[in-house]
Amino acid sequence: MTAPHEPASRGWTGAVRRRAVAALPPDKLLPDTQPAYMASWIYVFGVLTLSSLVVVLATGGVLALKGPAWWHVSDAGKYVNSLHLWSVELFMFFMVIHLWGKFFMAAWRGRRALTWITGVVCFLTSIGTAFTGYLVQQNFDSQWIAGQAKDGLNSVGIGAFFNVLDFGQMLMWHIVLLPFVLGLLTAWHILLVRLRGIVPPIGAADPAHGSPAASAPLPAEGEAP
């Protein structure tokens, strides 16, 4: 409902704004409370993955600023390359633990299947992005990985269009196309998490809908952790 004092918002722009604000009002987009059942260290691996992605993008950005040859000939460049490598190791590390955690929570329940699917596509896209990164190192590793990987890609016809032996093409995929797609997918994934909220525990009943037990007195500490 439009508040009486709000000027009538017409046209496409108004419609998009109304729908966006209705789906994700500010206090749902950035809430300062969470359900009380969200109380485990397993919940921090999503934000650790996101933080690692920020470090990966920042260190990759510095490597891009200086150009692909820099880190082979400069100590500072070598250190930035090391930052990029280790942030990727941490990124994948945290993302896999995040995936394990969400699996054991069956976090796709309650209209959250798309959140799971976008997460899995993020994971697969990250593997592709890391792989193209290995291809553009311009060292022995890249040469060998390219020579090996071409067979897999050629065998299913992808290699005819996505040529791992073409450094220029792989550099563009690594620093433009794949990070762009990964960024979009990540934003979508996080907005879906905010939209649907944190998935309730498996087997939890709705506390709002009165079952006979809902008004019963509190039980004693039922179960030791």
Binding site: A36, G101, F104, P201, P207, S215, P219, G222
Partner: peptide, 17 residues
């Protein structure tokens, strides 16, 4: 993962309160 929830929510009937 949800042990703190279950500590308070669990009853013999398994209902949440």
């Amino acid at each position: 993962i949800w042990r703190s929830y279950h500590r308070t929510a669990d009853q013999p009937e398994g209902r949440d309160n």
